[in-house]
């Protein structure tokens, strides 16, 4: 059974169709990179996985649980799916330590001490243990994104979603975040990553999905995708992004 399964998913904003019959899956331990031009529906697709965006047609399963079933306990499901955003979205009024523990205590019912301990362990793993009492506004973008990753990991997720985690960062900070992600992939985390970092895709991804105008145009093993994409749109996209 795949960890994430997306079956014939379509979504509309009013009369505008953002996703058209999207089908793909992510096996346990697999890393999938999603790329495609701006507005092609990458963010929308990834947000359907934890039901941040509802869909009108098709089915989505995470670890066998149907996401778009009204009977599914969504908060419980979302707590098991880590998500990292383009703009970090740390809570600015809370210290790093509080950012890490908030959902652990509220959603998982962990005691404050246990939550702090676990949060600090992951903070240490992203190399920021000494910043635990700072506020997000006192950290650089790259540091904030690493805290955001630690925050997601503190929930013991069964898979992680990343929506352009490095595209709001200054170039010199991109690598520190990609390194954390690569480390995570090495440890066997299931990951679905929207990114235009083709170097990262090449090193880390198992498969690459290329989207255009709401369609999954290409869904191929990494070697095949970078070797010679089948579709012309993907070829053009790759040519543009690699000669950037």
């Amino acid at each position: 059974m795949a960890m994430i399964e997306i079956k014939d998913v379509s979504k509309w904003y009013g009369s505008f169709q953002v996703l058209t019959d999207c089908t793909t899956s992510v096996e346990k331990g697999e890393v999938i990179v999603v790329c495609g031009p701006s507005g092609s529906g990458k963010s929308t697709l990834i947000k359907t996985v934890n039901a941040l965006e509802p869909v009108q047609k098709g089915d989505i399963f995470v670890d066998g649980v149907k996401v778009n079933d009204p009977k599914t306990n969504l908060p419980k499901l979302r707590a098991r799916v880590g998500m990292v955003f383009q703009h970090f979205e740390l809570f600015p009024h809370l210290t790093v330590r509080q950012n890490l523990s908030l959902a652990q205590t509220l959603v998982l019912g962990r005691a404050q001490r246990e939550a702090d301990e676990r949060g600090l362990r992951y903070l240490d793993r992203v190399g920021l243990a000494s910043h635990k009492d700072k506020f997000p506004g006192q950290l650089s973008g790259g540091q904030q994104q690493r805290v955001a990753i630690a925050r997601a990991l503190s929930m013991d997720p069964i898979c992680m979603l990343f929506d352009e985690p490095t595209s709001a960062l200054d170039p010199e900070m991109i690598n520190e975040v990609l390194e954390v992600m690569q480390q995570l992939a090495t440890e066997g985390m299931t990951m679905m990553v929207v990114t235009h970092e083709m170097g990262f895709a090449n090193r880390v991804a198992n498969r690459v999905i290329f989207m255009d105008a709401g369609h999954i145009v290409e869904d191929a093993p990494k070697a095949e995708f970078f070797g010679k994409p089948r579709s012309e749109r993907a070829q053009q996209f790759l040519a543009k992004i690699l000669h950037h």
């Binding site: 934890n50 908060p75 098991r80 955003f85 979205e89 809570f91 959902a103």
Partner: peptide
């Protein structure tokens, strides 16, 4: 995104 981040962490 703040609301989304809260929701994504499982907060009601």
């Amino acid at each position: 995104g703040q609301r989304m981040a809260g929701t994504a962490l499982g907060l009601t």
